[in-house]
């Protein structure tokens, strides 16, 4: 095994471990912290099914953001949906044989890459052009976009400019999962791409990417509007009653 392969194998094991451990601990924290009062933003659903539908509209269509700003919605929706498509397409590097649906979406995946980068540039543009968004942007907000754009462009470059031996890449990742290591091709674009992805995985639980678990725990979105019908009492509040 080459030194390079060792480095990247180590990097991906570490990145996966950090991402999973970090997310598990964050999600546990979110889940364990009580929500002592009923605070859904009303009008809110009065049933559990209604809440599931509200949450679905939120994560599938970005309903609130759509109400908020159309431009941000367009850029962000394009970016996120393209990202899902691209991620889905990447399953072919981890599963053998490649499942039918992944195979079918293969041709669209490439356009997905372009759409993703375009959406990201749109979002980044707002951070310079809209004075309010510029004001609230920290260095990390710019860097996060640069990181994602870097991942997108380095990925696209392998499809459209300097081809990489994808069979070898697949062997490397399957090897990581089965502990039967296989050499990673030493292509510059590939290494950049993989390095940035590992970096993204590592910072995931420490960054604003926490909005992904966060949205599901947001009391203003996930609570049922039934405070008169059902008494809602948290554990620490119950103690005040004794």
């Amino acid at each position: 095994m080459s030194f390079l392969t060792m480095i990247f194998a180590g990097l991906f094991y570490a990145a996966t471990a950090i991402m999973i451990a970090g997310l598990v601990s964050k999600i546990t924290q979110f889940a364990k912290t009580p929500a002592p009062l009923k605070i859904p933003t009303t009008p809110a659903p009065t049933t559990q099914t209604g809440v599931v539908l509200r949450m679905f509209r939120e994560v599938a269509f970005f309903e609130s953001l759509f109400k908020g700003t159309k431009w941000t919605w367009i850029f962000s929706y394009v970016f996120h949906m393209a990202l899902f498509l691209v991620l889905f397409r990447h399953l072919r590097y981890f599963i053998n044989p490649v499942p039918m649906p992944v195979e079918l979406l293969q041709p669209f995946g490439m356009y997905g890459g372009f759409a993703m980068v375009a959406g990201l540039f749109g979002l980044w543009g707002r951070r310079f052009l809209v004075d309010r968004v510029k004001y609230i942007s920290a260095a990390s907000d710019h860097l996060m976009l640069m990181l994602l754009i870097g991942i997108g462009i380095s990925g696209l470059s392998m499809t459209f400019a300097v081809h990489t031996d994808v069979v070898a890449v697949k062997a490397f990742f399957i090897g990581l999962m089965t502990f039967s290591f296989s050499e990673l091709p030493a292509d510059f674009n590939l290494l950049i791409h993989l390095f940035l992805v590992a970096l993204l995985m590592i910072i995931f639980p420490f960054s604003k990417l926490l909005h992904i678990p966060g949205v599901f725990f947001s009391p203003s979105r996930n609570q049922i509007d039934n405070p008169r019908e059902k008494r809602h009492l948290s554990d620490w509040a119950r103690k005040l009653e004794d």
Partner: peptide, 24 residues
């Protein structure tokens, strides 16, 4: 308070600075 209010913990962690609220 972070340990007592899920809203506070989740809201402080989840903002992506999208700016949708800035003019509201």
């Amino acid at each position: 308070l972070l340990g007592k209010y899920r809203s506070l913990q989740v809201y402080l962690d989840s903002c992506v600075k999208c700016g949708a609220c800035t003019d509201k």
